[in-house]
């Protein structure tokens, strides 16, 4: 599903963000990536969504070799991967339903399909009654649910959640994590990055620890620690 083979990323300012990173994630896995700021987590995600191009090595996501994709195919790559962020990235001047519909509109989905799909997705994330609200009228947890609904509306095989709970209180944070687990049970590969120790330790899922652009630990039922070893 996701394969990184000796991937190196050097930014134009000579900063080495990833150096020879190997990573293999199977379909339907739930993987948490931890690491201190600047360890390379964000770069890893940017390479997956093709916001940045890798310097060397091989990246294959969903059967697609990133060395062979043309610039104009990049939007198609992004449509296959759902992404949510710490700051939600919602359009403030559009209603909840419109925000979710937006992801379908840009890909040219017919209006009838959008009308059918949006309420279903909002129901899945537990916001069925808030379709006509604006983002400012929602709590942080609800906003993140809208972002998740938008990321999932095109039924991607992979959902990347980059610090989705960073702006949320513990209760809301847990609700988001439970939602991600539910999505994972339905068959979507979930890639979570977080700094929240309690969440990582409670999840008891695969944990990958990154430090200085390399994977220093990869455990099937990992715990949160930023140091190598125990």
């Amino acid at each position: 599903m996701i394969l990184f083979d000796r991937v190196t990323k050097v930014y134009p300012n000579q900063q080495v963000a990833l150096s020879g990173l190997n990573l293999h994630i199977q379909p339907k896995e739930f993987v948490t990536i931890v690491g201190s700021s600047g360890a390379g987590k964000s770069t890893l995600i940017k390479l997956m969504t093709r916001e940045e191009a890798h310097t060397s090595g091989k990246i294959i996501v969903g059967g697609l070799d990133y060395d062979t994709i043309k610039p104009r195919d990049v939007p198609l790559v992004r449509r296959r991967i759902g992404v949510v962020f710490q700051d939600f990235k919602l359009l403030q001047n559009r209603r909840v339903g419109e925000n979710v519909a937006f992801a379908l509109e840009v890909s040219g989905a017919p209006r009838r399909e959008i009308k059918r799909a949006v309420p279903k997705m909002l129901q899945l994330v537990g916001l069925a009654s808030k379709e006509d609200r604006f983002p400012q009228e929602l709590s942080g947890g609800e906003r993140q649910r809208v972002a998740i609904a938008r990321a999932l509306i095109r039924q991607p095989k992979i959902l990347i959640a980059d610090e989705p709970t960073g702006n949320l209180d513990p209760k809301n944070a847990w609700e988001i994590i439970e939602l991600l687990l539910k999505i994972n049970r339905y068959g979507t590969t979930v890639l979570l990055t977080t700094h929240n120790k309690e969440i990582v330790n409670a999840l008891k899922r695969r944990v990958i620890t990154i430090n200085r652009g390399k994977i220093i630990k990869d455990e099937e039922q990992g715990r949160y620690s930023l140091e190598g070893g125990k």
């Binding site: 939007p75 359009l91 992801a103 840009v106 890909s107």
Partner: peptide, 15 residues
Amino acid sequence: EEIEIMKLVGATKWF
């Protein structure tokens, strides 16, 4: 911000 989101959800350049 809107442009960033459009890119994020896979809008083409001409869109």
